[in-house]
């Protein structure tokens, strides 16, 4: 009974991670410009791979493996916003435009303000 419960949790994590990855890939293709695509890739994509890593940890069932999987998840969650922020900052500073539907651009006069 216990191992069926563990397998169900693992299966839920696996399917959730794969679903998040699929949502991220669809968002990457459907969203209009670079800055909105970055939302899909760096949030849903990170959670997708992180959930799959957690599934490995739960499936193995011993503490060191689970701790390593948790460390990997934490590492991805830590680095994804940094890389997305760096990329968005570089693209905006160099002048890649926002899509036409964008409502406001708070970074427009960033160079003048500092």
């Amino acid at each position: 009974m216990m191992d069926i419960l563990l397998a169900a949790i693992t299966a839920l994590l696996i399917l959730g991670g794969a679903g998040f990855a699929l949502v991220a890939a669809i968002g990457l293709n459907r969203l209009p410009d670079l800055y909105t695509r970055m939302h899909a890739a760096s949030k849903a994509g990170t959670v997708g791979s992180g959930l799959l890593l957690l599934a490995v940890g739960v499936h193995a069932g011993d503490l060191p493996t689970f701790a390593r999987a948790l460390a990997g998840f934490f590492f991805f969650v830590l680095t994804a916003p940094i890389s997305a922020h760096l990329l968005a900052m570089a693209a905006h500073k160099v002048g890649y435009p926002l899509c036409a539907e964008s409502v406001r651009d708070e970074m427009k006069d960033y160079d003048k303000r500092i």
């Binding site: 991220a24 890939a25 994509g45 997708g48 791979s49 799959l52």
Partner: peptide, 9 residues
């Protein structure tokens, strides 16, 4: 970047 995440999965 997203491709790397999928390969990790």
């Amino acid at each position: 970047d997203m491709l790397t995440g999928i390969v990790i999965g």
